[in-house]
């Protein structure tokens, strides 16, 4: 029940990156801009052929798995919110059923309800706000009922209330055994909501472990080159940044 990247090297964007991901957990991938986060999650989704190394799903090489089989088990949400045609929301969410080649309404309705967008089902895509679009696109992933949900910056376009609602929903999915892998820019979200954090720096894995270890102030200082401090309140942690004074 694992998704594993071993010694991945991809075109200068990832170098010798390994990670063993387990179901039932939320794993966050963090790192500065250009660190290779999107490349890693695309490779884990089976969308990029590595120059070296392999991605395996339950010990089977992902590149050997038929496309539809892979699609049934791994749902992928990219960072960009491209919707080319002004189609109804329900049809967009139904695209998630494509690997199953069915029109099962139950998972589509469940996904619409889970993301609080059932009332938008008959609306057209181009009439939605940015936050609504983000939720519709995630609902498309949920409708496919994959074992793994790989999402690149799923919180970026959401307001704080919807961010927390979405994280709660992903937690519930992890609790029932799904593997959740998220690229997150917001380190406090990663610290508070992930079970595990992988920090990438210039295409290499710089840290991998519990959030409190992988996102320690010292690691952040090294990787992001910014002085920070975590402050704790009621078991939640917040990040305070301290601008670095240029040393003379």
């Amino acid at each position: 029940m694992s998704l594993a990247a071993s010694a991945l090297t991809i075109d200068g964007r990832l170098t010798d990156a390994s990670a063993l991901l387990e179901r039932g957990r939320i794993t966050a991938i963090c790192g500065p801009n250009g660190a290779g986060k999107s490349t890693l999650i695309e490779a884990l989704a089976g969308l990029l052929a590595p120059d070296a190394g392999t991605v395996t799903l339950d010990r089977v090489d992902l590149s050997q798995l038929p496309g539809r089989e892979r699609a049934k088990r791994i749902g992928y949400l990219p960072q960009t919110h491209e919707i080319a045609w002004d189609v109804p929301v329900r049809n967009l969410v139904e695209l998630g059923r494509m690997p199953h080649a069915d029109r099962n309404a139950a998972p589509v309705d469940a996904a619409l309800r889970a993301l609080d967008i059932a009332h938008l089902a008959e609306r057209r895509a181009q009439s939605l706000s940015g936050g609504e679009t983000a939720r519709v696109l995630l609902a498309r992933v949920l409708a496919g009922e994959p074992e793994w949900i790989l999402a690149d910056e799923p919180l970026a376009a959401l307001d704080i209330a919807h961010q927390l609602a979405l994280l709660a929903h992903l937690r519930a999915a992890a609790t029932v055994g799904k593997g959740i892998v998220l690229v997150l820019h917001d380190l406090a979200h990663a610290m508070n909501h992930a079970d595990r954090v992988i920090v990438l720096d210039q295409g290499r894995v710089a840290a991998d472990g519990l959030p409190s270890e992988a996102l320690s102030a010292a690691t952040i200082e090294t990787v992001w080159k910014t002085g920070v401090q975590w402050i704790e309140h009621d078991g939640w942690r917040a990040l305070v940044t301290a601008p670095r004074v240029p040393s003379s």
Partner: peptide, 20 residues
């Protein structure tokens, strides 16, 4: 047709949905 529908969400998503 159905592959074109999947492309509505862009090429990476279409491929992630199993479209060749």
């Amino acid at each position: 047709g159905h592959a074109l529908d999947a492309l509505t969400l862009g090429e990476p998503v279409a491929r992630s949905l199993g479209i060749d």
